[in-house]
Design a protein around this nucleic acid. Structure first.
Length: 188
DNA sequence: TAAGTGATCTCT
DNA sequence: GAGATCACTTAA
């Protein structure tokens, strides 16, 4: 029966396409940043799902990184001090929602800014296209919240990953301003 | 290159 | 409460 075949295919893809587990995010920031490249950011709007391959991220980690909101523990940055696997969404320049995924264990302030996915270049454009805003702040990255990350097993070669200093952070101190904490997939 | 935009944080 | 700041984008 044709209909039976179709349903078995749906079950199969559902089984393969799982949201990344909490443990994925509770690791060293540079490793998580690298491994996020090539993963799929999936947004569910109504019954429709939009998936976009992550192509660019920036790492903000620890107590000494002045470019990171987590440098100071405030009401806004509190989420970064929580356990990994939650979203941190905030407004920048009065207009743009920035999407970050909190990483690391509890009380370790760290997050990764998702700057680009597929053809959405720039963190502000990305969130606008996927209708991501601050209502998702502090929510877990899981299917229940409508925004999560999946491994679709695209092979990413380490030599295709470029590293540069982060964008637009100003002076974050001698050790941190020029750190190669921006990771992006080389085009082609 | 400059300006728009508004929440957040720091300083009174 | 006031003022500076900000991990951006767009229009010139």
């Amino acid at each position: 029966m044709a209909s039976r075949d179709v349903s078995s295919i749906i079950l199969y893809t559902a089984a393969v396409r799982k949201a990344l587990k909490r443990e994925f995010y509770v690791r060293d920031g540079e490793i998580v940043a690298r491994e996020l490249l090539g993963k799929f950011l999936v947004r569910k709007i109504g019954t429709k799902e939009i998936a976009a391959m992550i192509t660019e991220v920036e790492l903000y980690e620890g107590f000494e990184d002045r470019a990171s909101h987590g440098f100071k523990r405030t009401k806004r940055s509190e989420v970064m001090y929580g356990p990994g696997g939650h979203w941190y969404v905030y407004l920048c320049y009065g207009m743009y929602e920035m999407l970050n995924i909190v990483i690391g264990p509890e009380d370790h302030p760290a997050a990764i800014l998702i700057r680009g996915a597929d053809t959405y270049n720039g963190p502000g454009k990305l969130t606008r296209a996927l209708r991501i805003d601050r209502t998702l702040n502090a929510m877990p990255a899981s299917k229940e919240t409508g925004l999560w990350i999946e491994d679709r097993r695209f092979a990413i070669s380490q030599k295709d990953i470029l590293r540069t200093p982060r964008i637009g952070i100003g002076d974050a101190g001698p050790k941190w301003t020029k750190r190669l904490h921006r990771f992006l997939l080389q085009q082609n």
